[in-house]
Design a protein around this nucleic acid. Structure first.
Lengths: 128, 128
DNA sequence: TTTAACCTTTACGTTAACGTCAACTTGCAA
DNA sequence: TTGCAAGTTGACGTTAACGTAAAGGTTAAA
């Protein structure tokens, strides 16, 4: 088995450690659009990538709605009108600002963890 | 007015653009412990810092419970037993892992935004 | 062929993080 | 002293993101 070309819902659930319920929920909210064989969902490699992107967004605290916005935004890049593309650039800038804020927040928190670690070590020192 | 030493609930609400309801909610969940003058809440500079930390955590997608855990964790550093301090170091390591994952997620998303931006520019080019 | 493992839809339940009244008290400016 | 802006405690409502049954279809192995 060198390269899998399609996946069942439970395969994806197992791989990414979530429930099939969640995956169907994402589809209900149009974050995934798998094809069907009969009424059974078939996920392509692209669908799998899409799912990865969803989870990445979630790890950054984005809501499913925000994640969908990012997807729609991306789709618009292929074949949007001039107006859409300009609006799109604005949206992209907005996103960058959020990410930069998060970047700063991470840096600050890391400093605090460093700080806490030191205090830990100092505290442990006293038990010698 | 060079350095304010205490704040009312509505002052903080205005400064950080949230409702007094939220601030009281954080207190209900022991993320803030303002003193009282009569039954009115008085927030110290430390309380204000604490609130800042809460909002930073939220921007990173942490739940209020996780944020409280971080606070408790920090408190333990001053005057914890040896056992507590060792457990604390483990917790700190866990947190670092989450932050590093978020760091990677941010980097990936930034690359995607770069990518989308280029496609935008290319798309706009065609309207000349 | 039957049973067991997956799949499906439908629908109600749950938790977190507040929003939104309602009903009351308190501080202070006119 | 009065009235009104700002504070307080309930208590119920709301939204997002699933969890959790219930009731049933499909197919592959025994």
């Amino acid at each position: 088995m060198t390269e899998q070309t399609s996946y069942s819902i439970s395969e994806l659930a197992a791989e990414f450690d979530l429930t099939t319920r969640s995956i169907r929920f994402y589809e209900d909210h149009e974050l995934l659009k798998p094809t069907r064989r009969g009424q059974t969902r078939i996920y392509s490699r692209q669908d799998r990538v899409q799912l990865k992107l969803i989870l990445r967004g979630k790890r950054l605290g984005f809501s499913l709605l925000e994640i969908k916005e990012l997807f729609d935004l991306w789709d618009t890049t292929k074949g949007g009108t001039q107006k859409q593309l300009l609006l799109l650039q604005a949206k992209i800038s907005e996103r960058r600002i959020v990410l930069e804020q998060q970047q700063q927040d991470i840096n600050m928190l890391q400093l605090e963890l460093d700080n806490a670690q030191k205090r830990c070590e100092d505290g442990l020192q006293e038990f010698d």
